[in-house]
C-alpha cells in the first residue's frame, strides 16, 4: 500500500475481509471479532481464526466466492485455503 497522509492516520484503509470481493489480495491487519457477530463468542472465533493462520501480517487472497449470494468465500492464507462465511470474515481486517 502506498502511504498517503490520510491512510497513515489510522487503519482507515483496512477493510473487513467479509466485504471484499473475489480477487482481493492483501495483508491481514487485525483479527477482532465483535461479540454476537455470529454463532461463536468473540474469543472463540478469534482463537479459531488464529489457529487457521489468520494472524496479523499474513497475506490473504480471496480465491473464490460461493455460487449463491457470493457467500461463503475461499481464502488463501499463507499456504492453505480455507472456506469461511462472510459473517465470520467480517472479523478479519485486511488492507
Amino acid at each position: 500500500m502506498k502511504a498517503s497522509p490520510i491512510e497513515n492516520e489510522t487503519c482507515k484503509c483496512a477493510l473487513p475481509l467479509g466485504q471484499c470481493r473475489r480477487g482481493f489480495r492483501g495483508t491481514l491487519v487485525s483479527v477482532c471479532p465483535l461479540a454476537g457477530n455470529d454463532g461463536y463468542d468473540a474469543d472463540e472465533l478469534e482463537l479459531r481464526l488464529l489457529e487457521l493462520g489468520f494472524i496479523e501480517g499474513a497475506s490473504v487472497h480471496i480465491l473464490h466466492e460461493g455460487p449463491f449470494g457470493h457467500d461463503p468465500i475461499a481464502v488463501r492464507v499463507n499456504d492453505t485455503t480455507v472456506a469461511l462465511r462472510r459473517a465470520e470474515a467480517m472479523a478479519i481486517l485486511a488492507e
Binding site: 455470529d38 454463532g39 481464526l49 461463503p72 472456506a83 469461511l84 459473517a87
Partner: peptide, 11 residues
C-alpha cells in the same frame, strides 16, 4: 431465533 453456525473448512 438462532443464527446459523459458522463455517470454517479447509479446502
Amino acid at each position: 431465533e438462532e443464527r446459523s453456525a459458522p463455517l470454517m473448512l479447509d479446502l
